[in-house]
Amino acid sequence: MFRRLREAAPALRFRFDGEPLTGVPGDTIAAALLASGRLALRKSVVGGEPRAPYCMMGVCFECLVEVDGVANRQACLTPLTDGMEVRSQSGARTIRPAAGQEP
């Protein structure tokens, strides 16, 4: 999918849906996932279709993931840090407001 132009030590360890992966300092979560061959980060809200980062600049919100228990973080804007627990999100429940908040 993608390869790194330069091999940079030292590696940062993180997990995506429980699977151990590595990135390098300066990576965003999205970049580290692309470099690890992970494209689809979430399932779409209505149809449950897989979606991947699309703009890498914070505009499209296709890269929403759960980071250390906090949902809806933009993976393309969030710098990777050592030990991060990243989880993919699926569908409506996590992205819509809780019941009763819909105007």
Binding site: R3, R4, D27, A31, Y54
Partner: peptide
């Protein structure tokens, strides 16, 4: 992806 996204991946993380 957008072409811009690939360029950002190249500039920020050296991803080809």
């Amino acid at each position: 992806m957008t072409a811009g996204a690939a360029q950002i991946a190249l500039k920020t993380a050296g991803l080809v």
